[in-house]
Design a protein around this nucleic acid. Structure first.
Length: 414
RNA sequence: GCGGGUGUAGCUCAGCUGGUUAGAGCACCUGAUUGUGGUUCAGGGGGUCGGGGGUUCAAGUCCCCUCACUCGCCCCA
């Protein structure tokens, strides 16, 4: 490799990848629109404080994964590692909370300074949806239904399963956390080094540890479900009932948690086995405390984000290219006419291409390689009769047609 | 940030225990084909063997460092 290489964990999206990304983005956007979620974008960088406040000083994202730098004015700036914080900031700084509830869809690049792996990059792309100002369980149901709908539209529904859990409200959660820490502290010496570390900053995460010793300890730990107060229990029952009513299948996973304090009630992940260690494809939850944490008015919220690269890998090859028509002048004297015809086709909304050089044979070869479906051959003989030759590049059949009626003959290729 | 694997042409790879001018398939270019692509045939271009250092008479091959990719951990989309 020469020195000219992309920065670690970044990739060029050449047309094949770009097409796949656009496919995911377009289908997701139009599906979201069916639910009334409109696209919005926030800047790809924010003041570092925006993420520190929302993600907490101790989360991994803040402590080791943020791309942070000082700009020329001395401000601390961070490339967004996720977009919920940006949306919440926009809600506050734009005074949007006057118009609740709000439904937003977004998509774009995110940045995390991580060790790259399959399906995990330093610059990656996410789509996401946020529902703000709805405290009802029906909001959770809708946001999950939207995610499921998009996965189905993309044709990857059979490769994923929905895992669901509840964290309860802040009261239930705080009670549980306290008793979990108490229990785990009694097994301090048997916990893995990572989990001992987590015990301080993110104890709920220990429930999801992959370490076998940890799992044995966790098996005897108090259960979150037993600490749910009546209203939290009812909320979760309503979410489940709503999903049942819509026929959305899910699996309860009591170990599915979110570390940060403003998360509550539903936590969910659509996961796959197809992407190695990166199982989560579309994940989210309820974050009623977030906006307030940032200094805004108390505003309930629920949402999810999904990795476009991961979705694109599940989707596989995408062929959404327009059918191309190659215009081929037979001799140099027909080039001007060929360009005129090409422009006519383009003006009529057809995808047309005129090679920049080469004889007829070369141009046809090029057209074939580019995947053109048909070629318009412009030769002096036909021109004298007011005609052009139409060659179907799939079948090889060709016919001479009137120059004036060309567009009619080409309509079937559009 | 931690541990394992890999790195030879645009792509997929071969290259035996170190030993001449580093190979193949596909792709690309030219010609057969100055009015016909996809098939065929003939020819051609393309490599500082990821980069740097070391051992040796001799390194693609052995050693060290480094970079990138990859698998897992952490964490997450």
């Amino acid at each position: 490799m020469s020195k000219l290489q992309p920065v670690r964990g970044t990739h060029d999206l050449l047309p094949g990848d770009s097409r796949a990304h656009r496919h995911v983005m377009d289908l997701a956007r139009s599906t979201a629109a069916l639910y009334g979620y409109e696209e919005m974008s926030t800047p790809i960088f924010e003041f570092t404080e925006v993420f520190k406040r929302t993600l907490g000083d101790v989360s991994d994202i803040v402590t080791k994964e943020m791309y942070t730098f000082q700009d020329k004015g001395g401000e601390w700036i961070t490339l967004r590692p996720e977009n919920t914080a940006g949306v919440a900031r926009a809600l506050i700084s734009g005074g949007l909370s006057q118009n609740l509830p709000l439904k937003y869809f977004y998509g774009g690049p995110m940045f995390r300074y991580e060790r790259p792996q399959k399906g995990r990059l330093r610059q990656f792309h996410q789509i996401g949806a946020e529902l703000l100002g709805v405290a009802e369980a029906l909001g959770d149901v809708e946001i999950i239904a939207l995610g499921a709908h998009i996965l189905k539209t993309l044709g990857v529904a059979d490769q994923v399963k929905l895992e669901l859990n509840t964290l309860g409200d802040s009261e239930s959660r705080a009670d549980y956390r306290a008793s979990l820490v108490k229990y785990l502290s009694g097994h301090l010496n048997d916990l893995s080094a990572e989990s001992r570390d987590r015990l301080e900053r993110n104890p709920l995460r220990i429930l999801d540890s992959k370490n076998e010793g940890d799992r044995r300890i966790v098996a005897g730990a108090p259960k979150l479900a037993e600490y749910l107060n009546p209203s939290s229990r009812e909320f979760f029952q309503n979410v489940c009932a709503g999903l049942d009513a819509l026929g959305i299948a899910y699996e309860l996973n009591p170990h599915l948690v979110r570390g940060l304090d403003y998360y509550c009630h539903s936590a969910f992940e659509f996961t796959t086995e197809a992407l190695g260690a990166q199982g989560a494809v579309l994940a989210g939850g309820r974050y009623d405390g977030l906006v307030e944490t940032m200094g805004g008015p108390p505003t309930p919220g629920v949402g999810w984000a999904a990795g476009i690269e991961r979705l694109a890998m599940l989707v596989g090859e995408v062929d959404n290219k327009a059918n191309m028509i190659a215009v081929v002048p037979v001799g140099a004297d027909m080039e001007a006419e060929a360009f005129a015809v090409t422009q006519e086709l383009r003006a009529a909304g057809l995808c047309a291409d005129l090679a920049f050089r080469g004889n007829m044979s070369k141009r046809l070869k090029r057209a074939n390689r580019a995947g053109a479906v048909c070629a318009v051959l412009l030769g002096g003989d036909e021109a004298a009769r007011g005609n052009v030759t139409l060659r179907d590049l799939g079948t090889g059949d060709q016919q001479e047609v009137a120059r004036d009626g060309l567009l009619d003959h080409l309509k079937r290729y559009s």
